[in-house]
Design a protein around this nucleic acid. Structure first.
Length: 230
DNA sequence: AAATCACTATAAGTCAGGCT
DNA sequence: AGCCTGACTTATAGTGATTT
């Protein structure tokens, strides 16, 4: 980002790389494209990035005109993509499509993280395909530690809340299985039907919710990209 | 809520010396 | 000359506490 250690080339690919190719930067942009606008929202989607570095990257992205920053009087800082930032969408999706197409899926499935998966699912859930009443779906990963085992998605008025403590509502549907299976489903590597048939996933509760889960559980944006490698 | 700071760890770059 | 090695330097990233 600093003049002195740039690539020293006038080629536009080099110029774009100066802005986007430092560690974490493309993932920060991805979080913006997924709708995050606040520091702690960004952190949630980038759990292994240190806040100091996130702060630094945000300054750099502001400097290069990818985002704008507005600080309100109550101390809340709001980050928004600029038009230039929004135009990075096809590039970031292109990167993801490339990896989905060419990289072996077992490499992705080495990087399992329940909180990240649940956070992503929260975002992609299709609330229009769920009942209009309040709806609570519990996900249970029996192999994980107590702190990571249980997750609840509470859908109400088209909004989705994620908790990893019992919100106290009646559970409409319990989804139980390995984190690996659930991640593979979300990435489009397998289907709910395949996993329930193989008994690596179990659905208990509301029959209609269970039947339609493949429809309301929005998948990763890359789930439909055809793969060249298994 | 959103940093900022002081500190530590690691990676990357530079360069001299030795070997064939 | 060309290549490798290892010591040293510098830049970058991570941690955890603290601040506004």
């Amino acid at each position: 980002m600093v003049e002195r250690d740039g690539y020293g080339q006038f080629c536009p690919v080099s110029m774009a790389s100066e802005i986007l190719c430092s560690r974490w930067t493309t993932l920060v942009v991805r979080e913006f494209l997924c709708g995050s606008t606040r520091f702690n929202e960004l952190r949630r989607g980038l759990p292994k990035m240190s806040p100091a570095l996130l702060s630094k990257r945000l300054k750099e992205l502001e400097q290069s005109g990818v985002i704008t920053v507005t600080r309100s009087a109550n101390g809340i800082t709001d980050y928004q993509l600029t038009a230039a930032g929004e135009e990075l969408r096809p590039l970031i999706i292109g990167l993801g499509n490339w990896a989905q197409r060419w990289m072996e899926s077992r490499l992705s499935l080495k990087n399992l993280d329940p909180s990240l998966l649940m956070w992503d699912m929260r975002r992609s859930l299709d609330t229009r395909r769920l009942p209009t009443r309040r709806c609570t779906i519990q996900f249970l990963y029996p192999e994980l530690s107590a702190a990571q085992k249980s997750w609840w998605l509470v859908v109400e008025d088209g909004k989705v809340d994620l908790c990893n403590f019992d919100p106290g509502y009646d559970v409409d549907l319990l989804v139980e299985g390995s984190l690996r299976s659930m991640t593979a489903i979300w990435m489009g590597l397998t289907t709910i039907r395949q996993e329930t048939d193989a008994e690596t996933l179990k659905l208990e509760g509301d029959r209609v919710l269970a039947r339609d889960m493949q429809e309301w559980l929005g998948l990763s944006v890359f789930a439909k990209t055809p793969r060249m490698r298994a």
